[in-house]
Design a protein around this nucleic acid. Structure first.
Lengths: 208, 208, 208, 208
DNA sequence: GATGAATGAGCCTTCATTCAT
DNA sequence: GATGAATGAAGGCTCATTCAT
C-alpha cells in the first residue's frame, strides 16, 4: 500500500507541475494566448502527459479557476475572524472582491471566462467543484447577514436570497470598470461600486 | 444626383446583407463558431467584400452588439410611455432585461462578449458607439428614478449613481442564471433576481 | 491644339499626383507594405484611375526607381563641374553612391528591388528607361576615366569596361553593409568600401 | 538506445523531406511563388508538420540558403587543393561564383533574397549561420591571398579587406548580368566580369 | 475620363487532440 | 506511465486587378 500511496503522491505532484506551468503562462500571456503546447513545454513534460492528467485544456483552466475562487474565499473567510460589525464585514467583502478583480486580474478573468461563456460547459464533475468553491463564498456572506440579524443590527431578511443578490450585484458592478471611460463617463467606478454596496447595507439596517 | 443616392442606398443594403448573414450565423452557431469565411458564404459575397465594408470581424460583431443594445433600449424606452408608477417602470426594466437575456440570448451573449472580454478592445470609434447606445439605457433609468423623486414616491438619491448601481447589479444577477444548477442550488433564479430588484426599489421607497 | 496641350498637362499632373502618393507611402511604410489601394486613398483618386495612368503596381514603382536614379545621377553629375582631379571625382562618385544608399534608403531599396528580383521583368518600355537613366550614370564615370587618361594621370584602360566594373563593384559592396554584424564581423564597412575604391584608383594610377 | 537514435535519424529524414520539397518548388516556381501550403503538399505532409520542424517560412528558406552557400563553399574549397597559382585560384573563384549564379540560379536567388531584402531579418540564430557559411568563403579567399603573399607573387595587402572587397565586387558584378540587354548594351557581361577580376589581380601582382 | 465595389485565391499560422511506440 | 510527432481544418486577412456604370 506504500506503493499505492507513493503513486498517488507522484500523481498529485505531476498535476501540480502542470498547473504551475499553466498558471505561469496564464499570468504572463493571458488566457487566449496560453496553449497546451506551451504548457507542456513550460512544465517540461510531453504533450501526451498533459492529456493523461487532464482531459482537456478546459479542464486545466477549470482547476485554475478553482484556485482563484479559493484565494478569494480565503480573503473573505479572514473577515469572519474579525471583530468587525457585520455591515463592515459586508463592506470588506465587497472591497475584497473588487480588489481581487484588479490585483488577481488573471484569476478573475478565468472565472469570468467560465461564467460568461455562452456555451453551457461545466460537465457534471466540474459543476460540483464550482458549487463547492463558489457556494462556500456565498455561505460566508450568508453567515455575515445571519450574524447581523442575530445581533439585532439587521432587519430580518431571507439571508440566502439576500446573499445571492448581493454577490451577483457585486459581480456585475465589477464588470462595469471596463466602461469607466464610456458609459460611466464622468462617474468614478469605485464611487458607483461603493454606492451600490451602501444601498444593500442600508436595506439591511433599515428601521434600526 | 439619383445616381449618388442609389449608390448610397445600395451600399447600405450590402452592409445590411452582411449583417443579416452574420446575425443568422451567430444565432445558429454561436459567437465562437461564426467566422468571416462563413459570413461571406452565407451572404453570398466574396470574403474581400466583407472586408470592404467592415474593417474586421470584431467590427461586425460590434455592429451586432449595437443592434442588440438598440432592441433592449427600445424595449425599455417603451416603458417611458406607460402610465406605470416609476417603481413599476423599474421592475419592468429589470424584467425586460432578464427577458432580453433569455429570448434574445444571442444578442445578450454578444454584449457579454465585449463586456467580459479581458482585452481592452473598443477603439475610440467603437467606444463612442457603446457610450451612445449603452449610455442611453442608463439615461432611461435615470429618468424613471427622477420622475419617482419628482412625484414624491422616491427618497432623494443620486439618480445617476443609483441607476448605474441598479443596472450593473442586474447585469451580474442575470449571469447567475448559469449557476442555477450549482451555486444557486435549490434557489430559483427568477426569485433571486426579483428579490434583488425589490431591494433596490425598497431603498427608493424607504420612509414613504 | 491648346486643348490638346491642356489635356497633356492635366495628364502629367495626375501622374505626378499618383507618384507623390506612392512615394510618400514608400517612404513611410516601405516597399512591401505599399498597396495600390493605399496609393489611391492617399492620392485621393479612385483605384480605377490609378490603373488608367499606370498599367500595374510594378509600373508605378518603376517610375519611382527612375526618380531615384535621377537623383543619384544629378549627385554624380555635379562632380563633373568641379575642378577635382579625376581620381577624386571617382572617389566622390563612390562616396555619393554609398551616401545615397543610406540617406535615400527607400530609393535605393526600390532600385535594388528591380535589380535583384529573380524574375525577368523589365518589359521593353521599362528597359529603355533604365538604360537611359542607369546608363547615363555609367557614362559619367566613363567621362571621369577618360578625362583622367587625357590628363595623363591615368593609365590607358578600356574606359567603358572599367566604368562598368567599378560601378558594379560599388553596388555589391554597398550591399555588404547588411553583413556588417555577421560576415564583416570586426571590419568596418566604410573602411572596406573605401579600400575597394582605392584598389580601382590605384589601378588607374599605376605607373604614374 | 537504438530507439533514440532511430528517432533522431527519422527526424533528420523528415527535415530533409521538407527541404527537398521546398527546394523542388523553389526551383520550379521561384521564390515568390513557393508557399508553405505547397511545400506541405509536395512533401506529402500536413501543414502543421512543417511548422513542427521549422519555425517559419523564412526558416526554411534560410536552410536552403545555407545549402546554397555550402555548395558554393565546396566549389571554392576544391581550389585550395589544386596546384594552381594563387592568382589563378582567385580567377577560378570568381568563375566559380559566376557559374554558380547561373547554374545554381535558384540558390543564388535565395541568397540574394536574404541579402537584398530591405528588412533586417536574420534573427541571432540565423545570423550566426550566415556568418559561419558566408564567412568561410571569405576565409578561403583570404587564404588564397595570403598564400600569394607568402609565395612572393603578391604585393603586401590587407588580406581580409582585400578579400571582402573582391568578394563584394564579384557579387555586384554578377547582378549586372540582368542588365546585359540594357545598361551593358553592346558589352558582353562575361567580358566585363573578367575585366573586373583582372583589375583586382593586377593590383595584387603590381610591381612583380 | 473617372470611379470604386467586388472579387477570391491564396497567404501564413495556430492548436487541441490522437495514437503508435 | 510517458512521449511527442503528426495532423489538417480553420482562422483572419491582403491585394492586384477588373468592369459596369
Amino acid at each position: 500500500m506504500g506503493l499505492k500511496e507513493r503513486r498517488e503522491r507522484e500523481k498529485e505532484a505531476r498535476k501540480k507541475q502542470i498547473l504551475d506551468a499553466a498558471r505561469k503562462l496564464l499570468f504572463k500571456k493571458g488566457l487566449q494566448a496560453t496553449s497546451i503546447n506551451q504548457i507542456a513545454r513550460t512544465a517540461e513534460l510531453g504533450i501526451g502527459t498533459i492529456y493523461f492528467y487532464y482531459q482537456s485544456k478546459e479542464d486545466i483552466f477549470a482547476s485554475l479557476q478553482e484556485e482563484g475562487l479559493e484565494i478569494l474565499f480565503r480573503n473573505i473567510e479572514a473577515l469572519t475572524k474579525t471583530e468587525l460589525y457585520p455591515e463592515d464585514q459586508l463592506r470588506q467583502t465587497a472591497a475584497a472582491y473588487l480588489t481581487f478583480s484588479i490585483e488577481q486580474k488573471d484569476y478573475f478573468d478565468i472565472i469570468n471566462y467560465f461564467l460568461s461563456s455562452p456555451q453551457v460547459m461545466f460537465e457534471p464533475d466540474l459543476k460540483s467543484q464550482v458549487d463547492l468553491k463558489g457556494g462556500r463564498i456565498v455561505s460566508l456572506i450568508i453567515g455575515f447577514i445571519e450574524s447581523g440579524m442575530a445581533m439585532g443590527r439587521f432587519t430580518a431578511v431571507d439571508a440566502r436570497k439576500f446573499a445571492l443578490a448581493f454577490w451577483g450585484a457585486l459581480y456585475g458592478l465589477i464588470q462595469f470598470r471596463k466602461l469607466e471611460k464610456t458609459v460611466l463617463d464622468g462617474e468614478d467606478h469605485k464611487a458607483v461600486f461603493d454606492y451600490a454596496v451602501e444601498q444593500f447595507i442600508a436595506r439591511l439596517m433599515a428601521d434600526k
